[in-house]
Lab assay of single mutants.
Amino acid sequence: GIQEIVAMSPELDTYSITKRVKEVLTDNNLGQRLFGESILGLTQGSVSDLLSRPKPWHKLSLKGREPFVRMQLWLNDPHNVEKLRDMKK
């Protein structure tokens, strides 16, 4: 599951990941809330907090790293936007 992926993950640049996620969401007119609930399993508040103030990787616990790994996996998925759009319906 995701825990193994997080444990094996190389250090991620949390700042550039969140910046990229925000760009993709904005460009495709997708909400942070939808993204947070569907992709990260987080509430709106947690998501906007994460996206606006990402902590550096080395300061995060494994649990804290999980959303960033999920974001990275989502960014790597060529169908990420379509999938999210489908969830919106």
Rank of each mutant, 00 (worst) to 15 (best):
I5G: 09
T26F: 10
P67M: 10
R53Y: 07
H58N: 10
M8I: 06
V81F: 04
V24E: 03
L30I: 11
T14M: 02
I5R: 11
Q44S: 14
G45I: 07
K19E: 12
D77K: 04
L75K: 02
A7N: 12
E4N: 12
R20A: 11
L42G: 05
D49K: 07
I5V: 11
P67A: 15
I39F: 03
I17D: 04
D77R: 03
L34S: 07
Q72C: 07
Q44R: 15
P67T: 09
L75G: 01
S38Y: 15
L60F: 03
V69R: 05
K55W: 05
K88F: 05
R33C: 15
V6Y: 06
F68Y: 15
D49T: 09
G31W: 01
L42N: 06
T43F: 04
D86E: 13
Q3R: 08
P78L: 04
M8R: 15
L30N: 01
R70I: 07
S52M: 13
S52Y: 05
K63S: 11
N29Y: 12
D77Q: 05
N80Y: 02
T14V: 05
G41E: 07
P67H: 13
D49N: 15
K59S: 13
V24P: 00
H58K: 11
V47T: 15
S38K: 15
W57G: 00
V24T: 11
G64D: 12
L51Y: 03
D49H: 10
E82D: 12
S61W: 03
H58E: 08
G41C: 06
N80P: 03
R65M: 00
E23Y: 07
Q44L: 11
V81E: 00
V69L: 10
M87F: 10
R20G: 04
S46P: 10
L42D: 09
G31M: 04
Q3G: 07
L51V: 03
L30R: 00
S48M: 11
I2E: 07
G31V: 02
P67K: 15
Q44H: 12
M71G: 01
L84F: 05
D86C: 06
L30S: 01
F68P: 00
G45E: 14
T26V: 09
K89C: 06
Q44N: 13
Q44G: 12
E37C: 06
L75V: 03
Y15A: 10
E23D: 09
L12I: 12
S38G: 10
L60P: 00
V24K: 07
R85D: 09
Q72Y: 11
E23M: 11
I39Y: 06
Q72P: 05
R20Y: 03
K89L: 07
T43H: 09
E37G: 04
R33W: 06
G45F: 08
L40S: 03
G41F: 07
K88H: 08
E37S: 08
R70H: 05
W74T: 01
Q32S: 12
L75T: 04
H79C: 11
P67N: 15
V81S: 03
M8C: 14
N28W: 02
M8N: 14
V81Y: 04
P10Y: 07
S46R: 09
P54D: 00
D13V: 00
P67I: 05
I39N: 01
T18G: 08
E82W: 06
L34Q: 12
S9W: 05
V21T: 03
T43I: 03
M71P: 03
S16T: 13
F35K: 01
N29C: 14
D49E: 15
E66S: 03
P54V: 03
M71C: 07
S61L: 03
Q3P: 11
E37L: 07
R85L: 15
K55D: 12
N76H: 12
V81R: 02
D86Q: 08
I39D: 04
L30E: 02
P10V: 07
G45M: 10
K59D: 12
D86R: 10
W57V: 01
H58S: 15
D77N: 05
P54R: 02
L60Q: 03
V21I: 10
L62Q: 15
M87L: 12
V81H: 03
R70Q: 15
R65L: 00
T26Y: 12
P56Q: 14
E23C: 06
